[in-house]
Design a protein around this nucleic acid. Structure first.
Length: 114
DNA sequence: GCCATGGCTAGTA
DNA sequence: GCCATGGCTAGTA
């Protein structure tokens, strides 16, 4: 992972591969906000790559500085997290993200526009 | 060939 | 619940 600095700053540089770019985008999500795997994929110009974005988040070496916990499924469901969904939910709640029920984020209220 | 997705359809209640 | 999709890595040769 050569582009650590750029990633942490949320910048895309030309040498980055898909994974690195995904992480860089992720770094831009403000506290209290949330984004979708698909949102990041779209932002990178490949709509079908939402699954690949999931892979990228899974390997995130800069967690939780690069806030991969702020990425959720398209419906607002908490899909996955290396240290468990309970942790993910706890972190999001602590940041003030509104929930509809225990594993469902209120997307309308806190979806971040990339 | 795996997967932290997502969208669509069959088929139950 | 099925399957198309896309990027990546473990693991074979």
């Amino acid at each position: 992972m050569i582009h650590e600095k750029a990633i942490r700053e949320g910048k895309l540089t030309k040498g980055m591969n898909f994974t690195e770019k995904s992480l860089a985008i992720c770094a831009r999500i403000p506290k209290g906000k949330v984004v979708t795997y698909g949102d990041i994929a779209c932002k990178l110009g490949s709509d079908g790559a939402s699954r690949a974005v999931g892979n990228a988040m899974n390997g995130n070496p800069f967690s939780p500085d690069v806030p991969c916990h702020r990425v959720v499924g398209s419906t607002g469901k908490l899909t996955g997290f290396a240290r468990g969904l309970d942790k993910k939910r706890a972190m999001l709640k602590k940041e003030g993200v509104p929930f509809k029920n225990d594993d469902q984020v209120d997307m309308a209220a806190c979806r971040h526009k990339l």
